[in-house]
């Protein structure tokens, strides 16, 4: 009998209202409900959160390092999407 029969879940926590949920780590549990409870006990012992998401690790679809070139490099050559690309006269430069 192996523990890994208990599924792995990823834990995301909103540290305070107005902020995004942020990945904090993972844990093992029987189901989503238990994962939520354990996330509370494991990752918010010092009131680190006001909201928790748990996601089955197996359900996460992640980009691969091999894809990085195709995924991200094409956007490196679009400096015109950044505010700093445009030099405006001082009078209106706080735009």
């Amino acid at each position: 009998m192996q523990d890994n029969a208990l599924e792995l879940f990823e834990v995301f926590i909103r540290s305070k209202r107005g902020l995004d949920h942020k990945h904090v780590g993972s844990l093992h549990s029987e189901d989503h409900e238990q994962a939520l409870e354990y996330a509370r006990d494991v990752y918010t012992r010092r009131s680190e959160g006001v909201s928790i998401w748990v996601v089955r690790s197996a359900d996460i679809c992640a980009s691969q390092e091999d894809d990085a070139e195709d995924f991200f490099d094409p956007n490196d050559d679009k400096p015109y999407r950044h505010a700093t690309y445009y030099t405006l006269p001082d009078a209106v430069n706080n735009m």
């Binding site: 009998m1 523990d3 029969a5 208990l6 029987e30 189901d31």
Partner: peptide
């Protein structure tokens, strides 16, 4: 742990 898996 076995009980958890069986219950699930």
């Amino acid at each position: 742990r076995e009980a958890l898996v069986a219950y699930n």
